[in-house]
Amino acid sequence: MSPIQEFDDIHVVVLHKEENAGLGFSLAGGLDLENKAITVHRVFPSGLTSQEGTIQKGDKVLSINGKSLKGVTHNEALGILHMDVGGFIMSVTLEKSLAGLGFSLDGGKGSIHGDKPIVINRIFKGVSDKNDAVQPGDELLQLGNISLQGLTRFEAWTAIKTLPSGPVQAVIKRSSNAGLVNQ
C-alpha cells in the first residue's frame, strides 16, 4: 500500500495561479519552528484559495507542485510556495533601528493600482548596511514570523512597527531580471 492510500483525508487541489499573483494563503510551521508540520496559517478572503474553497486554515500541506514539504524549514516551505518563473526567493537578515527598516513600501491589498504584493519602494541611506541586501522592486513576503501576503500597506507597516529593534529575518522575492546589489 502506498503512503497516500493510508489516508482518506488527503486531497489534491489544483489552483490556476495568475502571473504576479499569489495562491491566496500563508503557511505556518516548519522543521525550525518546534518541528511542526507545514500547515495553512491563513486563507486570504479575496484570494484564489478562498474562491476555490477546498483549502482551510489548519490543513497540513504535504507538497506543492510535486515538491514535498516533509522535514523542510519554514523559509524552505515559503520558497516552494512562492516558486515563480519570473523571480527567485531568498532569505536576508535586515537590521531594524529606531528609524525602522530603512525603506518605504508600495502596493498591498487595496492599493491605488488594485491588489498588489507589498514591494520595497525606496531605500533610505544610512539606516543600516545590512539593509543593502534588499533593493527597490523586491517583493516583501515575510518579516520574522509575520507573513505580509494579502495585507494592505498600512497593515504591513503596522507589522513592521511591532518588530523589536535588532536583526530581522526577511523573505523576499526578486524579479529574475533585476540586478543584484553588493554581490
Rank of each mutant, 00 (worst) to 15 (best):
M1S: 14
I4G: 05
I4Y: 12
Q5W: 05
E6S: 11
D8N: 15
L15W: 00
H16A: 14
H16N: 13
K17L: 04
E19N: 06
G22C: 06
G22F: 05
L23S: 02
F25P: 14
S26P: 05
L27D: 00
G29Y: 04
G30K: 03
L31A: 06
L31M: 09
D32L: 02
L33T: 06
E34T: 07
N35K: 13
H41T: 02
R42E: 09
R42N: 08
V43T: 09
V43N: 06
P45G: 10
P45N: 07
P45M: 02
S50D: 06
Q51G: 06
Q51Y: 06
E52S: 10
G53H: 06
I55N: 01
K57F: 07
L62P: 07
K67S: 12
K67I: 09
S68W: 09
L69Q: 02
L69W: 02
L69Y: 01
V72K: 02
T73H: 01
T73I: 01
T73C: 01
N75G: 02
E76P: 14
A77L: 06
H82N: 09
H82Y: 12
H82V: 03
M83W: 09
G87E: 00
F88H: 05
F88W: 08
S91F: 04
V92D: 05
T93R: 11
E95P: 00
K96W: 01
S97F: 02
S97K: 15
L98F: 10
L98P: 03
F103P: 10
D106M: 15
G114T: 03
G114A: 01
D115N: 15
D115Y: 00
D115A: 04
I120E: 00
I120M: 00
N121S: 13
N121A: 05
R122Y: 11
R122H: 15
R122A: 11
I123R: 03
I123E: 00
F124W: 12
F124H: 12
V127R: 04
S128W: 06
K130M: 11
K130D: 08
D132L: 12
V134G: 08
P136E: 03
Q142F: 13
N145T: 09
I146A: 03
S147H: 04
L148F: 07
G150F: 09
L151Y: 06
L151F: 07
T152F: 12
R153M: 15
R153E: 14
E155H: 12
E155F: 05
E155T: 04
A156M: 10
A156P: 15
A156W: 10
T158C: 09
P167W: 10
V168W: 12
V168R: 07
V168S: 03
A170D: 01
A170H: 11
V171A: 00
R174L: 02
N177K: 14
A178K: 14
N182I: 07
N182F: 07
